[in-house]
């Protein structure tokens, strides 16, 4: 059991779980945490089931007050965490007492951090998932981003137990993101891995735009057809867009490849302008990693 009140928050805090599956046929996107392993770690630290919903926050920080005793953890992007005036480590479980103030700084490395709360978060479950999809108002906190004054309340949950995990390694100067071939791979005239791309600052939960030398392609548009998170679209300008969790279910640009599932979280955490290379890997390897 736990209860937190949001004292301050940016525009980009939402409730997310592993995502919404089985409803693409109705045009409903997958959604879910951008960095699934960080989300699962946040749950692990507070002794929750790995798939339970957590709070995902991008770019900005947040401040919360414990209304009741509450077990929390913060994972993902590197932040500074304070309980009242005391700095405490992220990637660890903490017990808040009634009246404690939890302050989470904006990320200093990475994009998305996750706040795990001991117990099962009370939130809207639409189409089998608690994940918030703001555009259609599904899931989470009434289908919207968190705002000041919101109460985050959990039920059940296990007693406090001290857990710690290691912070993941920092991304290298040029991250290698592994991809498998997509349906329109053959239209490509250049190998994607020859180009070093950078993450465009306009990237968000719908897609990560890249910056770099354009890739050549035969033909421009295809008949609208299915796309999924990880699909790499190549618009006529030759600059790839990697579709992310909130992407639409169909699209009209050639799909040259797909980022392997295992690398999606790492990609989502790359800061604006970070360098990356798209490396095609043999299919068998991609399938083993699913």
């Amino acid at each position: 059991m736990g209860k937190l009140k949001v004292l301050s928050v940016g525009a980009l805090s939402t409730i997310q779980d592993e995502g919404r599956f089985g409803y693409r046929q109705f045009g409903i996107p997958q959604s879910g945490a951008m960095d699934i392993s960080a989300m699962q770690n946040a749950n692990h630290l507070v002794s929750n089931n790995p798939e339970w919903p957590v709070i995902e926050t991008a770019i900005q920080g947040m401040k919360l007050e414990a209304i009741d005793e509450t077990i929390i953890s913060v994972t993902g992007a590197v932040v500074t965490l304070k309980i009242n005036e005391h700095q405490v480590p992220m990637n660890a479980s903490h017990q808040l007492q009634q009246g404690d103030i939890l302050t989470i700084s904006k990320p200093m490395g990475g994009v998305y951090f996750y706040l795990g709360i001991g117990g099962q978060l009370r939130a809207n479950k639409d189409f089998g998932s608690y994940s918030t999809y703001i555009m259609a108002g599904f899931g989470g906190m009434e289908g919207r981003a968190l705002k000041k004054g919101d109460i985050l309340e959990t039920q059940g949950g296990k007693p406090f137990k001290k857990h710690v995990i290691k912070q993941g390694t920092k991304p290298s100067m040029t991250e290698t993101i592994r991809i498998m071939k997509g349906p329109e791979w053959k239209l490509l005239k250049d190998l994607p891995e020859r180009t070093i791309f950078q993450v465009d600052p306009s990237s968000n939960r719908m897609g990560i735009r890249l910056i770099g030398d354009p890739l050549g392609i035969d033909g421009k548009e295809i008949l609208s057809s299915a796309v999924i998170p990880g699909t790499i679209q190549l618009p006529p300008n030759g600059i790839p867009i990697v579709l992310m969790n909130d992407c639409q279910t169909t699209g009209g640009y050639p799909r040259i490849g797909k980022v392997v599932n295992e690398d999606m979280g790492r990609l989502s955490q790359l800061n604006p302008m970070h360098k990356l290379r798209l490396k095609i890997i043999p299919l068998e390897e991609a399938l083993e990693k699913r």
Binding site: R24, Q25, S225, A226
Partner: peptide, 19 residues
């Protein structure tokens, strides 16, 4: 079959088994 997305000239199917 876990999901299916038919469109103009293609059908995407989502599965939970060996390809």
């Amino acid at each position: 079959l876990t999901d299916i997305v038919p469109s103009y000239n293609s059908i995407a199917l989502f599965h939970s088994f060996e390809e």
